[in-house]
Amino acid sequence: MKRTIPMIITFIVGMLVIISEFVPHKPFGPIAGTLENWFLIIAGFTIILGVLSLIRMNSIKIKSRAENWQYFLAGLISFGVMVLVGVFWGMQESSGILGHGEKISAWLGTPPTKPFDYLFNNLFIHLSATMFSLLAFYIASAAYRAFIIRSFESNLLMITAVIIMLGRTSLGTIMTGWLPPSLQFLHLPRIADYIMMYPNSAAQRAIMISAALGVIGSSLRIILGIERSYLGGGK
């Protein structure tokens, strides 16, 4: 019963969504949108589970004095501070239980910034940007490994990458700009454009088409109850 009911619900909902794609009339047409709204409502409630999991996980680490427990304490304090300032003084135009906190907002800067927005803009955004900027360094190290010539394929990859990189910068234009019009097809920016437009697009589309086929097969298996692993597996 624990599996049968979810499987019946999955089948009915799956069929309704498929029908709604081809039957725009009520009641079928708006079903997909309604289900999306239901999902958002359920997701809103489950956030409590997430928060409880976060507090529990960090508390266990702090209580057991696990290695680097200070980080978990810092995480928990940061979480608590953000929640409290949001609840007390609100964020942006919305007010908190203590109002808009005009005094503290004025004290935090000009123009007045609410404590939540202040922490968000001056801490959170910068921390996120720091993580994102790590990509620049990781791309360099990953590219180095990828371009080491070990096989025919990696050789091909390196040559293509060099053409693309040169073609996408002014260096490529300078290097091949002097070529006569009859040899314009050898201009690096042109070759780079050609590679991006044809071989690259073709490969990407092939992956996308095969992924779409995978989605159809996977969805059918789930709707028909052949695939049950997402319910915890077993037959």
Partner: peptide, 28 residues
């Protein structure tokens, strides 16, 4: 992943990569 634009990153940094459809075929 089925996100084609992320596959090159996984291919260079991981030992094994499931490309597009293979992710959906994995369970079967």
């Amino acid at each position: 992943t089925a996100n084609a634009h992320q596959l090159p990153f996984f291919i260079v940094a991981c030992d094994w990569t499931l490309i597009g459809e293979e992710l959906f075929a994995a369970s079967a």
